[in-house]
């Protein structure tokens, strides 16, 4: 296998690994806070779940980008594309926006979600605001995803 292919695979790994790690940190922080709310108030499970699920999307974005890269280099059935070194590097770099933005936004969105549990605990009716606060952080993962996708589509191999 050429080095180009390996670099592209590294890119896919970074995308799914880092964005996923961000989501892991985020969802677990929100989940811990949610467990506290639920143990006092089991009726709030639905609300807590929504807030906990928010930082989960970064992992999916990373997965998505990884998948696009793997598909681009033909790892799913069909023939593996002969990738030049520079093509491989390009794909690797293309994965970075979502890898970095996904990791940090997943993590910190989780923190906002965990703090948002305060709203769920004390003012459940204002929960929509907690969701919006948390979703603000996600914006940057979405932008990272967008650029990663456009870059991958744009690279001709």
């Amino acid at each position: 296998m050429e080095l180009g292919i390996s670099l592209a695979i590294l890119g896919a790994g970074l995308a799914v690994g880092f964005a996923g790690a961000g989501s892991v940190l985020g969802v677990s922080a929100a989940g811990q806070a949610g467990a506290g709310v639920i143990s006092e108030d089991p009726d709030k499970f639905g609300k807590v779940l929504v807030l906990e699920a928010l930082p989960a999307t970064q992992g999916i974005y990373g997965f998505l980008v990884a998948f696009l890269i793997l598909q681009k280099i033909g790892l799913f059935g069909g023939e593996i594309v002969a990738l030049t070194m520079s093509n491989g590097l390009s794909l690797l770099f293309a994965s970075l926006p979502i890898a970095i933005a996904g990791f940090s936004s997943g993590w910190y969105q989780g923190k906002v979600s965990a703090s948002g549990m305060k709203i769920v605990a004390t003012q459940p009716k204002a929960m929509g605001k907690a969701i919006i606060l948390s979703a603000m952080v996600e914006t940057y993962a979405v932008l990272g995803l967008l650029i990663s996708i456009l870059l991958i589509f744009g690279i001709t191999v």
Binding site: A29, Q32, A33, G34, A35, G36, V37, S39, E40, D41, A114, M117, K118, A121, T122, Q123
Partner: peptide, 17 residues
């Protein structure tokens, strides 16, 4: 402070009462 996440939210729930 991360290890205080759960107990903080427990406390918030209790504070409302």
């Amino acid at each position: 402070s991360d290890k205080y996440i759960t107990i903080s939210s427990l406390v918030w729930s209790r504070e409302s009462k």
